[in-house]
Design a protein around this nucleic acid. Structure first.
Lengths: 174, 174
DNA sequence: TACAACATGTAACCGGTTACATGATTGG
DNA sequence: CCAATCATGTAACCGGTTACATGTTGTA
């Protein structure tokens, strides 16, 4: 159900857009929260149109269909955000790796964590660059909160990996 | 592929176990990193047995099959941990919600965040209780790192929600 | 003897990925 | 004219969830 919510959200903020536009928007904006390929987006838009959550207001060249969110669609989005309590269960490859660390030799686990910390560090720098680029920019709106959250989470992973590596090395060095 | 990795990890640390045992172990240990139902676990164990990653050493009453990890299985786990670089893409309902916040009125967004902070706070207390119960306990091993990471992540969400609510309220109150 | 817990499986379905397939328009 | 990009779709497959289905053992 979350895919359609994401699409309704994008349509709310971007205004009318085609499936093609939305596919690119997915990649450029919502990417660190959710992902979807065009092969999933197109059929979903058709389903939503059939259910009246979006409408095709105009058809352009190359078969382009421009979708607009309807009142029903906006209501659906709002209801999901406010009334549906967030599901607690989630999958995280990072957490799974954390869980499996003790199956390795301590020096291997520490090395793995150092490498992970390194790569989270790189990612953190990328995200901070994006924020820096946007801050001197117009509307403080879209993706702002999600980006802030993403930066915090990435920083956390980076610090956790570093500290845990140190902890493992510390308790081994005796 | 991660399901089989998780199963191999559990078999490594728990020793030989049945599908039934593993299903319960999933719930009680690895739960905040990954989830799986018995309907997924049983077929996967059969597949892994066919591929030689685990073996059925003994069959007990009620058709109970006790699986043991093989050297091939241990190698598979180790290789995955060390050689496969973590996939960066992940889905997070929490992050999606963050992204969608600006589609709400500021006062609604702030209220939503307060409620989320509240529920993350409850969850945080639960996790800390688990850690406290385990700390005065035996082996500092299993689930330790994953639990620590889970606590940090939950605390982060709690703080982020609280601070973001305050930020939104602050910028509105003019 | 009845109920809870043990124990394993299958089938239908849903969401997501990869790959296949097609064609129109624009710019160099 | 050719290539890149715009633009939409379908089919096969995979991982995961829900529900269905069945039978055994221990214990109150």
């Amino acid at each position: 159900m979350s895919l359609r919510i994401a699409l309704l959200g994008l349509l709310t903020v971007s205004g009318p857009a085609s499936g093609y536009d939305l596919t690119k928007l997915f990649e450029s904006s919502i990417n660190n929260a959710w992902q979807a390929r065009h092969s999933q987006i197109y059929p979903e838009l058709n389903k939503m149109a059939a259910e009246g959550l979006v409408t095709v207001e105009e058809e352009g060249p190359r078969g382009r269909k421009t979708y607009t969110i309807t009142e029903d669609g906006a209501r659906e989005l709002r209801t999901w955000l406010i009334e549906k309590e967030p599901s607690r269960s989630h999958r995280s490859e990072g957490a799974l790796r954390a869980f499996l660390l003790p199956t390795l030799e301590p020096h291997e686990a520490a090395a793995l964590l150092r490498a992970e910390a390194e790569s989270y560090g790189v990612r953190l720098a990328e995200l901070e660059a994006i924020r820096a680029a946007k801050s001197s920019w117009k509307e403080p709106g879209f993706g702002h909160y999600a980006l802030d959250l993403g930066i915090r989470q990435t920083r956390l992973m980076c610090e956790w990996a570093e500290e845990t590596a140190a902890e493992i090395e510390g308790s081994t060095r005796s």
